[in-house]
Design a protein around this nucleic acid. Structure first.
Lengths: 211, 211
DNA sequence: CGCCAGGTTGATTTCGCTCAAGCAATGTGG
DNA sequence: CCACATTGCTTGAGCGAAATCAACCTGGCG
């Protein structure tokens, strides 16, 4: 049923899947690539509130609440997606209540991520937030090279990364320098080299109030 | 069924209902009073990430995901609650799938609130965040007095309020002074007087980048 | 009466933002 | 194929909002 209904589509970096406030036409599943979820702040501000990766589902929240999209989705890399229309999904849900439960679990973990985002944003300086995001992205986008270093291939532009950690691009740039100078992480373009994972952890734990 | 299973309980300000990391024994519904949800940051840090009010349900997220509580719940006022045990709730959910859907909607709106929190925290200064929280609390905790002023009775201590808007108590105190001096809002203890609602809106819209 | 927690005030510091310029990579038109 | 514009990123200087540190006030309570 799902196989018949789904619609494959691909999009390129920068492309916008849907915009905050749009009526929810359906949901998207990411086959490959990365999507940034943005939300408008006051005025012109527009902030990345989360990343979605291969295997994730987009827009189910708006679908479930029968509301417009609550944030905008923008591909940060080449993406392969599949789209399931609202009407089709409704049928699927009725036929299979377990899916609703799955959505509930997704929502729970999403909420969790956001709470964590709030708390890290409040309790850590930019530099430590940068270290933190590396730790978060480690499992998906880093692997050990020949010399045992951790080698990242970040699926993000500087601008998106900055917004994700809640900083200006300039501040991010300086934080990158700082981590580089202290030998914690070497950035070159979207590549990052970390020789000791513990250094990243120390960045986070070693902040003034206790540890 | 629910009526038989639920367990009434009351608690006083400062009392902790459950702690982050505790296994989820059941869920709580707030009959009256206010509960602050806290989450640990790095080190000693402990930040309020949301308020829950009369009518809200606590802990359903941990229940649904079958995980430990993801944040701590602390009463900020006298509270009347009712408690539904995990095992009982399971039965209720099986008998009544619509409840799961209700939970899903709750989770969706909770996520929404958190995204908003992130974005306001990033795009507004303390003073504007304070104005903003008043707007949010307006419907529940303010009413018009004889002279047409908006009169708040905040259900929060200064400390909790500060943490909620992501600021130190000292900074909150100064922001309160500032709003008072500019005639936007008069704070006296937990009472707040706002003569013109638009002034609060201006605090938020009137921030530098455009508006 | 002294103690203590919560709140306010003041002085100082600092982190990150703003503004502005420079630079490298990419793309476009002549 | 090269001058030029454009875009994304980095660097520097200066500023400002909020954190920190520390003292002090106030009200509640033993």
């Amino acid at each position: 049923m799902l196989d018949e209904a789904k619609l494959a589509l691909s999009c390129s970096p920068g492309q916008v899947l849907f915009v905050e406030g749009d009526p929810c036409r359906g949901i998207y599943c990411i086959q490959s690539g990365v999507v940034a979820l943005r939300k408008a702040g006051h005025g012109e501000t527009n902030s990345v509130v989360a990343l979605r990766h291969s295997g994730d589902t987009l827009g189910y929240r708006a679908f479930a609440a029968d509301s417009p999209y609550r944030n905008s989705a923008e591909a940060t890399t080449e993406c392969q997606l599949c789209y399931v229309d609202r009407s089709v999904l409704k049928g699927i849900l009725e036929a299979n209540p377990a899916v609703a439960n799955h959505f509930l679990c997704l929502a729970a973990s999403e909420t969790d991520q956001l709470e964590t985002l709030v708390v890290t944003c409040r309790s850590l300086p930019v530099r430590a937030r940068l270290a933190n995001v590396l730790l978060v992205l480690k499992d998906r986008y880093a692997s050990a090279d020949e010399e045992g270093n951790l080698r990242f291939e970040l699926p993000l532009s500087r601008g998106v990364l900055a917004s994700l950690i809640g900083a200006r691009p300039e501040s991010l740039s300086r934080a990158i320098n700082a981590l580089g100078q202290d030998g914690v992480a070497q950035f070159r373009g979207r590549e990052v080299l970390v020789s000791d994972l513990d250094d990243l952890l120390d960045e986070i734990e070693g902040v003034s109030p206790g540890g």
